[in-house]
């Protein structure tokens, strides 16, 4: 019995220590942002990360968005038609997309495609002593490696989310107008009437936070992975799972906070 409680205690302490380490790592990363912005020497490290995080993620984001839009519209079509609300299908599809599904699914895709790659790269550098080599040569690995990756994730997550949203909107329109023969004009009118800039911006705000967490968690897991191929593999899995859970939790709390702000400023908004 004592060993049972001891094991729980040990695990709690380990989790709290890990949590503290992660926030110290985050603090160190944020502390380097101003000096990185001032040092033109460091800017050169950003472009390769923009390419890896952004350009190479565009196709997968567009495919994700397209099929999310197609599925949402296909699911809603029969129910809305039965209720005589089929012309308002765009409201359901596009609102869900820009405020929720777009940022969350783009975040999950980013965590899988980019987060895994970042953890694997930094984890390999860790186990092959390249991080120690940087330290010995007087360079801080957080400034050198983490800051550019973090900045790329924060800046590009909302842009990738926009690609996802755009293709989702196109997919929804395709199912509604081409496949379900809903007139395009009322579909567009109701969509434009219901979906506000606030919805788009609140979704993009979430994606910025998701991008930041993905960058930080992936780099942290890479920096702290155990030796060997198994250690790097475990770190990659852990980075994805942790990022996924953090995205979902953050999404909920940001949704509540953003809803409260909206209600306080503009009041309740009926959608249908």
């Amino acid at each position: 019995m004592i060993s049972f409680f001891a094991a729980i205690g040990a695990r709690t302490i380990a989790s709290a220590t890990e949590f503290g380490r992660f926030w110290r790592f985050t603090g160190a990363t944020l502390a380097f942002l101003p000096s990185t912005a001032m040092r033109t020497k460091d800017w050169g490290r950003l472009m390769p990360q923009f390419y890896l995080v952004g350009v190479r993620s565009v196709p997968v984001m567009m495919i994700t968005g397209l099929f999310v839009g197609l599925v949402l519209a296909a699911q809603a079509a029969a129910q809305l038609r039965a209720a005589g609300l089929e012309e308002r299908m765009g409201v359901l599809v596009n609102l869900s997309l820009v405020s929720e599904l777009g940022p969350v699914l783009a975040g999950v895709m980013l965590a899988g495609r980019v987060g895994g790659a970042l953890t694997a790269e930094l984890g390999t550098m860790n186990v092959t002593e390249q991080l120690d080599a940087l330290r010995v040569m007087g360079s801080n690995p957080i400034r050198h490696l983490v800051v550019p990756r973090f900045v790329a994730c924060v800046i590009l997550a909302p842009i990738l989310t926009l690609y996802c949203n755009m293709m989702g909107a196109l997919g929804g329109w395709f199912v509604a107008v081409i496949m379900e023969s809903i007139p395009s004009e009322p579909y567009m009118f109701y969509t434009a009437d219901a979906v506000e800039k606030w919805d788009l911006y609140s979704g993009l705000a979430k994606s910025i936070v998701f991008g930041g967490f993905i960058g930080l968690i992936s780099c942290y897991k890479g920096f702290n992975c155990k030796a060997g191929a198994e250690g790097v593999g475990r770190a990659c899995t852990s980075a994805f799972v942790t990022s996924f859970i953090v995205i979902l939790i953050t999404d909920f709390y940001m949704l509540r906070a953003l809803q409260d702000i909206y209600r306080a400023v503009w009041g309740f908004r009926p959608l249908l």
């Binding site: 092959t128 002593e129 390249q130 120690d132 080599a133 330290r135 010995v136 040569m137 007087g138």
Partner: peptide, 19 residues
């Protein structure tokens, strides 16, 4: 410490060249 490390060269076991 970064200033002191300028006096040191370190050859790592796995070479630790940046890939």
């Amino acid at each position: 410490m970064a200033g002191i490390r300028r006096d040191f060269g370190f050859l790592f076991q796995l070479s630790a060249l940046f890939d």
